[in-house]
Design a protein around this nucleic acid. Sequence first.
RNA 1: GCCGACGUAGCUCAGGGGUAGAGCGCUUCCUUGGUAAGGAAGAGGUCACGAGUUCAAUUCUCGUCGUUGGCUCCA
Length: 648
Amino acid sequence: MIEIRLPDGSIKEFEKGVTPYEVALSISEGLARNVLSAKFNDQIVETSTPLTTNGSLILFTWNDDEGKKAFWHSSAHVMAQAIEELYPGVKLTIGPAIENGFYYDVDFGDHKISESDFNQIEQRMLEIARGKHPFQMREVSKENALNHYQKERNEFKVELIENLQDGEITFCDHDTFTDLCRGGHLPHTGFIKAVKLTSVAGAYWRGDENNKQLTRIYGITFPKQKDLKEYLVLLEEAKKRDHRKLGRELELFTFSQKVGQGLPLWLPKGAALRGRLEDFLKKAQQKAGYEMVVTPHIGHKDLYVTSGHYAKYGEDSFQPIKTPHEGEEFLLKPMNCPHHCEIYRSGQWSYKDLPKRLAEFGTVYRYEQSGELHGLTRVRGFTQDDAHIFCTPDQLDDEFKKVIDLVLYVFSSLGFENFTAQVSLRDPENKEKYIGSDANWEKAENAIINAAKEKGLSYKIETGEAAFYGPKLDFMVKDALGRQWQLGTIQVDYNLPERFDLSYKGSDNELHRPVMIHRAPFGSMERFVAILLEHTAGDFPLWLMPQQAIILSLSEKYEKYAEKVLTLLENNEIRATVDNRNETVGKKIREAELNKFPFMLIVGEQEEKDGTVSVRRRGEGDLGRMDPEAFAQLINKEISKNLKAFEV
RNA sequence: GCCGACGUAGCUCAGGGGUAGAGCGCUUCCUUGGUAAGGAAGAGGUCACGAGUUCAAUUCUCGUCGUUGGCUCCA
């Protein structure tokens, strides 16, 4: 007999060799029907794996992430079988489960696959699923495994197996199909009831663009047809929050093929919105001891040779601008740091002057790969809410924490709660990719981790994700479709101070090297506005709204009174506009609601007579008549409730 | 940059070898209204651009540009 501990803490005795499925059955038939996969002593096992020792067992269903993972991983096997049958001679490589579904990377040889092939594959997958073929794991010796795939001339699987230890290699069989696999499957294919292949994409073998390009097919499957329908509806809903769509509808920004790809044009409303965000940050930064500076949009090539950026990115950047005569070369500014370093160098500093915090809304230009451009989130010309802090090594920890406070203030003022902090460190295996000494890297990495810990951030460490000049702490936020984007960033840099020979006079009367912190709480105005749009669906916090209220005149007769109310509101710092069009009030309300006006003020005969406005709140309805002054107070009270001042 | 899809009116989209259609928006007129679409008329398109096939191309083929889902990249 063996003892199995279940998640509720209870311990049950079973015959040696009991399977997770049988354990589930002993609890309830319903559970047994729904159990998809299991974890025994922190190891993923099949529901059919005999358990031979004491241990703790967790059973997973569709409601668990691990259950979905097994579901989708198994679905990848089924898709692979369908593809192999329909396109004989293809070479399978890897096919994992992902956050929403799964993919399989396949070498189709000369065959071109496109979305028009999906239906056929989906149909075959469903046929296989209906066969209720059990997934069965078996151990294979390295030699046999290699033989199997050498016979199939599948160099990809051979490469995978070569990197595995003999004795830990397993194959998974179902129906007529066999795949190299570590495990974690459904009991059988019959659980898969709904199948949707979502896209086809090129993907490099092992993610390296020097390798062969494979065809990646993405799909998603569900245990019920209804779940698939719901998922598709969810996708449709997410599309409604797409910042590209909202940006056009709300007249915030546009693009022009003539101006060039990735170069956004900010429309009046968008520019006003962006200006308001800038003012908000400027105010907080002033309190936090920052000083604003302004630098030009181009810089001499030597500036970037000194900074090291030219060597690293020169080839892959917008190419230098040449002067007519002297043969000088200038680069479009890809970042503000070198300019700020030169500002620092323009003076002499004592340790008493530090930290020096230089801030600029600096517009930069980067030649991003054309396939990477995406709305406002990835562009070629954008404005960073940049600042560089020059401080003594002793001040680093404290300054770093202060920056975290500022970023958290920005995020909370704008209602971003679901962000993750990511600490990006150097890849110790690939040190040549980075500039700077080991000692400095270590110091900087520790400073970041300590600050993140002390500020109570829940952070994730990503090795190899650091910038080439230093480690960083990024604040990541998801867009409507769940894609992660970096917004705020804080980076420690020991290298630029070195390269620009920056110094300050210490209390010992000697020259010392300052440490530099790069930071941008928004990241870039473009990306921030994009993500903010997707999070709020255009329903911005009241203080940020391009227009806070719209005055709807009941007919042209009340135009004068409407204008009078507008002036009154403007005197109270409220952004409002008048809709005097010859339309019914019903239509005006509908459009104001769709255009996200938070407040609608209806004025007609009654209002004009007693000097009031009828207030309607978006999404809530009629709030009744009130004095325009009272309305102004209502708005301003709500704003001051939601927008707290930054406390240092 | 690579793989796939797409590009028709300001916007959302239908159509299809014989040079185009809807809804919304826009203009004008009627209507002067009470909390999510009042009515009528009209204007607006080199069907992204360039080449090829054809008697004829917006439609088919190729290329370019742009957009887009991924991959690689992201100072």
